[in-house]
């Protein structure tokens, strides 16, 4: 008697669980199967995502297209001891009085040596965004160039390039290093 009622209850519970599962399955996917354990096939969605190994073994990249003999920075330049670096304030490209004096003497040197072609290189300290500093270095070099042109230097003899915060004179992180790195350099092109 006792076992019988137990059995009946068990059946009832099973029935209820089944209906429940059914109901819950229907909420999500109308095509849910009717058994307590949905989905009965093995094939499922296998084999739909075959990796095409395309490219995977091509990973040993060929670098043959690269000209290995390329020189360091393309253009050969040489420092001219008589031409002095000028420095700038943080995030500035205006020329200080001191910088203007130096540019005057640089311009005078160039007039004395008309065969010299000079490249003005603009640099920044490491603070700030790299891309912004590239533009800022360009500004600094251009500021120096236009000042020298206003002093009578032939603009044809002056070119500019920016290295941004690359190639610092002092790679450490100190105010002194930053001040040293915020500069424009004058190099003779060959």
């Amino acid at each position: 008697m006792k076992s019988f009622s137990k059995k009946a209850l068990l059946q009832l519970a099973l029935l209820l669980t089944a209906t429940l599962l059914l109901a819950s399955g229907c909420a999500k996917k109308p095509a849910a199967t009717t058994t307590a354990i949905p989905e009965t096939t093995v094939s499922e969605d296998m084999g739909q995502d075959m990796i095409q190994t395309e490219g995977l073994d091509e990973m040993d990249l060929s670098e043959t297209a690269i000209d290995e003999s390329a020189s360091e920075y393309g253009v050969t330049t040489a420092a001219v001891s008589a031409l002095q670096n000028i420095s700038f304030e943080f995030d500035q490209y205006t020329l200080s009085a001191e910088a203007q004096d130096l540019l005057v003497s640089n311009a005078a040197y160039m007039q004395a040596n008309p065969e010299l072609k000079i490249r003005i290189e603009g640099y920044c300290d490491e603070r700030g965004s790299d891309e912004y500093n590239l533009a800022l270095g360009q500004r600094r070099a251009l500021a120096a160039k236009s000042f020298m042109v206003s002093l009578g230097t032939d603009p044809q003899l002056l070119s500019v390039i920016s290295y941004g915060e690359e190639l610092p004179l002092d790679p450490t992180s100190s105010e002194e290093a930053y001040a040293l790195n915020r500069r424009a350099e004058f190099k003779a092109e060959r």
């Binding site: 519970a13 209820l16 669980t17 209906t19 429940l20 909420a27």
Partner: peptide, 22 residues
């Protein structure tokens, strides 16, 4: 039910996000 078996589960309001509801 009185035996503690889940007999009903009805969304009165869904969240609109299936991951959440799931």
């Amino acid at each position: 039910n009185s035996a503690g078996v889940l007999t009903g589960k009805e969304f009165i309001k869904t969240s609109g996000d299936s991951t959440f509801d799931d």
